Simulated scan of single mutants.
Amino acid sequence: MSLVNECGCVPVLGALLATAAGIAASFLQDLDQPADHRRQVGAFPVQHTDMTSRTLHRRLAGEGTSVRKLQEEVRESLADELLESGLTLTQVGEALGYGEVSNFIRAYRRWKGLTPHQSRKRMQGSA
Rank of each mutant, 00 (worst) to 15 (best):
Q40R: 11
A35G: 08
L70G: 05
G99C: 05
M123P: 02
L87S: 01
Q91N: 13
D30S: 15
Y98H: 08
G93I: 07
S53F: 07
P34S: 11
L78W: 04
P45M: 04
S102H: 11
K112R: 15
S85V: 05
P116M: 12
M123C: 11
I23N: 01
R39L: 12
L31A: 01
G99R: 12
T19L: 12
E6T: 07
F104V: 08
L70Q: 07
F27E: 13
S26N: 13
Q124D: 12
A61V: 00
E100L: 13
S85K: 09
V67D: 01
L28T: 03
G86H: 09
N5C: 06
V4D: 09
A25I: 00
R122L: 14
D50C: 06
T115S: 15
G86P: 13
C7P: 00
D80H: 01
M1T: 14
A79Y: 02
S77N: 13
R106W: 05
G22Q: 10
T49F: 06
G113I: 10
S66C: 02
V67C: 07
K69V: 15
A24K: 12
V92Q: 01
K121R: 14
G125L: 08
L70R: 01
E76N: 02
S77W: 00
E63I: 09
L3D: 13
H48R: 14
H117C: 03
R39N: 01
Q40G: 01
S2F: 08
L3E: 15
D30Y: 11
L78T: 03
N103K: 08
L17R: 12
I105K: 02
S119A: 15
D50H: 13
F44I: 10
V92D: 05
D32W: 00
Y98E: 00
R58W: 05
T19E: 15
G97M: 04
G42C: 06
T55Y: 02
G64H: 10
A24V: 09
D50Q: 12
E63K: 03
V101L: 01
A35Y: 02
I105D: 04
H117G: 05
I23V: 15
R75A: 04
L17P: 00
G97P: 07
H57Y: 01
E81V: 05
